[in-house]
């Protein structure tokens, strides 16, 4: 797998070598126009998705500071990441970002750098001649001024992720690497979709349980328009949750009555709520007087997926593969 992707990188590199970026370059980004006279020599990333995306593009040596970590860095990037100063695990201060004198700031969320940004507004950085880039996955078709995690005005599409990869690759003059990364990700997604199709299972429905504020309380479920909702829909699974919010709270009564054929349960390192532990989630599903009667629970059609894969990041395809592999193992459903 690794060899194959290396080989394809090499192939693509020759195919696209003519496409070197012509500076100055202008990028349209979430309502702003980014003008770069040359490839940025230093970048601060706020949000793990952007950090790992730059690492995947081989730009680790350009990253001079990182912040906002949800999970440990992917093992394949550990060596690169160890050399980069971490400004903070959580939200960095405006001045700690400035202190690195970056040419560019890449932010995963608009609520970090954006109109109501807790780190700062984009204008604040622009005034100091620091360029900013916001991930299209978080701003396109999404209103981040409404709802605690923002509200999607249109369904998320993986194209927004690819656009982010391509634009960053263009900004750093590594377009061939960007194309090969996009190709590798979209090939894997195509294979995952084909896998579910090959199972021959018809009318598959699903619900994805992220966590709950208290074990028995109304759970946070994947809404229909968010990243996780897109993953289900792209795989051919009908999400029984119809809310447009990114992570709506939905009562177990509604979920149990909807009786999805598959329940997807998030696994995470976070331990803020009891239900962050997926073992406790499984235990609850089997013991609760209502959920124990759901078809998915009775027949063991429960899929575990890593929470890091439920964001608009290069890890998303990992989650789609996990779900697809689990669907192949499902038994007892009519074809």
């Amino acid at each position: 797998m690794l060899l194959r992707s290396l080989a394809s990188t090499a192939l693509l590199a020759t195919a696209f070598s003519a496409h070197a970026t012509d500076f100055p370059v202008q990028l349209q980004n979430c309502g702003y126009t980014l003008t770069l006279d040359k490839a940025p020599t230093s970048v601060v990333t706020i949000g793990q998705a952007g950090t790992e995306m730059l690492y995947a593009l081989g730009l680790g040596d350009k990253v001079v500071g990182t912040a906002l970590w949800f999970n440990p860095v992917q093992p394949r990037f550990k060596a690169v990441n160890d050399k980069v100063p971490r400004l903070s695990d959580n939200i960095p201060s405006f001045e700690s970002v400035l202190g690195k004198r970056p040419a560019l700031v890449v932010s995963q969320f608009e609520w970090m750098v954006g109109k109501d940004g807790v780190v700062g507004t984009r204008e604040q950085f622009h005034d100091l001649r620091i360029a900013t880039y916001a991930m299209p996955a978080d701003c396109e078709g999404k209103n981040n001024l409404v709802g605690s995690d923002g509200t999607r005005t249109a369904s998320y599409d993986v194209k927004a992720l690819y656009k982010g990869i391509r634009q960053l690759a263009q900004a750093f003059d590594v377009e061939a690497r960007g194309e090969s990364l996009v190709k590798a990700l979209s090939d894997r997604q195509t294979q995952a979709v084909a896998k579910v199709k090959s199972s021959g299972l018809q009318n598959l429905s699903a619900a994805l349980w992220f966590s709950s504020a208290d074990l028995a309380a109304d759970p946070y479920m994947a809404g229909k328009n968010g990243v996780a909702g897109y993953m289900m829909q792209a795989l051919g699974l009908r999400n029984v949750i119809t809310s447009a919010e990114e992570w709506p709270t939905v009562g177990w009564e509604t979920i149990a009555r909807a009786n999805p054929s598959i329940l997807i349960v998030a696994r995470m390192d976070r331990r803020r709520f009891p239900a962050d532990d997926y073992q406790k989630k499984l235990d609850f599903l089997k013991k609760d007087p209502v959920t124990q009667h759901m078809d998915a629970v009775k027949n063991g059609r429960i899929v575990i997926v890593d929470a890091d894969a439920l964001q608009g990041s290069i890890r998303q395809v990992d989650g789609m593969e996990q779900i697809a592999n689990a669907v192949l193992k499902i038994e007892g459903l009519s074809k």
Binding site: F70, D149, S211, R272
Partner: peptide, 9 residues
């Protein structure tokens, strides 16, 4: 707290 998540729960 170490992990970055909104505390909305």
């Amino acid at each position: 707290s170490g992990s970055a998540e909104q505390a909305r729960g």
